[in-house]
Structure formats: structure tokens, C-alpha cells
Amino acid sequence: MDINIKFTIKVTKKDASIIDNTVTSFANRFLTSVPADIDRCIKHLEPIIEERRRNMENMNDMLSWLMAEAEGDETSTRNLTLKILTVNFAAIHTSTMTFYHALFYLAEHPEYMEPMREEIEEVVDREGWTHSAVKQMFKVDSFIKESQRLNTLGCLVMDRVACHPVTFPDGTYIPKGTHMSIPAHALHTDDAVYENPHTFDPFRFADRTKQQYAGHKGDMVSTSTEFVAFGHGRHACPGRFFAANELKLMLAHLVMTYDIKLQGNAGRPPNMWFMVHCIPNLKAEILLRKRVD
């Protein structure tokens, strides 16, 4: 865990290209500790990778998936380690920013804590802190999903490159090599899709009596042409199920343990934008107080 967290920070500060050993420069090896961190990670993963190679038919996890798809030099222990580090790099900052976006809404609207507390207490008393219990925390799930809707990690998602020329039914022609994206922010704030789309409605997706959210359609892991925070289609984020459980547990723990409000009772801190990327405000301050029953 320590290696993954520090790797994410160091790569962001330095040149992200060093995660690809084909472009690692001589200077980078001496100006950053990332190569040493990679070597440390190889020592940890090498015996696991060797064990996977001996027993691939009985394995079903991220590492085994990467190994099954690897070809040529991609099968080396170093390159498999780099892929694991890259996957973790992509997961850490995205989950962190998603949680902070939701945290700012909670600090701005502490009145939403009590409905979530009631739900969490009822479910945990019945199920304990189990996977089944987390699945039944519909208000917690909806709170995070609504935050995602208004604060997708970027205004453009699902970047694609056309491998072949395509003509759509309406006559739109996409030449080979065209770069395309889905306008997530515009889609998520479309009043033809969402009622009062610019209003934060924390339990918008929690009402399972509504047809569009019946069953598991309202869950944050459910992708659709109307909700693309995790992408959509066959290449939707495969880690969204783990991320959803992680985020819901974090929010549930915070709600049950602390009272929270914004410093100075100001409104929700404005987001920061870097090109097409939406980042939670880095200078915002919130106040936490241990909850007293």
C-alpha cells in the first residue's frame, strides 16, 4: 500500500512517462526514486507472478487477467509490475477526488446525515458490516452517485479513436483516426434526462419505486447512456464495483462517526478545472467533530 500511494504522488510530481521502461531516461533514474520503488514492487510481486504462472487455470483476479492478455515482452515480471502500478495509479486519485466531491456536499448540507445514519444503523443492525449490508445502503449509494453526476472527473469521458471509418444512421461520418469523447457534464445536466439537473438532490437515485431506478438500475455501478461517470459499454470501468464498495464504506463510517460542516459555513467550495479535468477545491477547509450520542 505504501508503495502504491507514494508511487502515485511521485509520478504526478515527476514525469509520468517513467512508468514505461521504454522511455525511461538516464537522468530520471537519478533524479527520482520511482525506479527504486518499481524495483521494490517487483520483489513483492515476483513470487506471486511465478505462482500465477504455475496455476493460471485456477486464478481469476486483475493480475491473472493482465497475464492472460500479455504478449511478448509484456509477459516479463517487470512489465506486469508496471501494469499493476499503473492500474493502482488510476484507481487511487480517482477514488480520492470522488470522495472529496461528496464530502463537500455533505459539509454543505449536514441535514442529509441523519437520513443516512438511520439507513446505515438499520441495515448494520440486521446484517452487520457485510457486503450484503453495503449493497442495501441505497441513500449512501445515491448520495455519491448524485455527486458524481454533477462532478464527473472530467467534462469529457470515454475517449476513443476510430479504428475504421464509420457512418451513423443519421449520416454523420467519422473518418478513421478520429478522436472522440462523450460530453459527460452536458449529458449529466441535460433537463431532458434529469429533473432539475443543476440541483444537488442526494437521494435522487434511492427511490426504487421509480421505473428508471427499479432493481439495481439506480446503483452507482450501473452505467447507461444517461450516466457515464464510470464509462459505458464493454469497456466501462471494471473496478467500479470495488470502488463503489470502498466509497460507500468510507462515507458510511464518516457519517456514523463524525459531525461535519464547512469552515465559516460558506457554500460548497467551487471546483477547480485543469483543461477538461474537474478537481475538488484544494484550499477548502472542513470541520470534523467526533459524534456524541
Rank of each mutant, 00 (worst) to 15 (best):
M1A: 09
D2C: 10
I3M: 00
I5W: 10
V11P: 00
K14P: 03
A16Y: 07
I18V: 09
I18C: 13
I18W: 10
I19F: 09
D20L: 11
T24P: 03
S25E: 05
A27G: 08
F30E: 00
A36R: 08
C41P: 04
L45Q: 00
I48H: 07
R54W: 09
E57Q: 11
N58R: 07
N60H: 04
M62T: 10
L63N: 06
M67P: 01
E71K: 15
E71H: 12
D73P: 01
D73C: 02
T81S: 13
T86W: 12
N88I: 00
F89A: 05
A91L: 08
M97D: 12
M97E: 14
A102D: 05
A102R: 00
E111V: 02
E114H: 08
E114L: 13
P115C: 07
I120K: 13
E121A: 13
E122I: 06
T130Y: 06
H131S: 10
A133F: 01
V134Q: 03
K135W: 06
K135F: 04
K135C: 07
Q136D: 15
K139C: 11
V140Y: 03
V140L: 05
V140T: 12
E146T: 07
N151W: 06
N151E: 09
G154T: 00
G154C: 05
C155L: 04
V157Q: 09
R160K: 13
R160E: 02
C163L: 15
V166K: 03
P169G: 00
P169I: 02
G177S: 07
H179V: 06
S181L: 01
P183I: 01
A184V: 03
D190W: 05
D190C: 11
V193F: 07
E195M: 09
E195R: 13
P197N: 02
F200P: 01
P202S: 09
F205R: 08
A206D: 03
D207V: 06
R208G: 00
Q212H: 15
A214P: 07
K217N: 11
G218T: 11
D219N: 15
V221K: 05
S222K: 14
T223I: 09
F230Y: 07
F230I: 07
F230P: 09
H232D: 09
H232L: 03
G233W: 05
R234I: 15
R234Q: 13
A236M: 14
A236F: 12
A236G: 08
C237I: 03
C237R: 03
G239C: 02
R240Q: 07
R240C: 08
F241Q: 01
F241G: 02
A243K: 04
A244Y: 05
L249I: 14
M250S: 14
V255E: 00
T257L: 03
T257M: 06
Y258A: 06
G264F: 02
G267E: 08
P270H: 09
M272G: 00
M275Y: 13
V276M: 13
L282N: 08
K290M: 10
R291L: 12
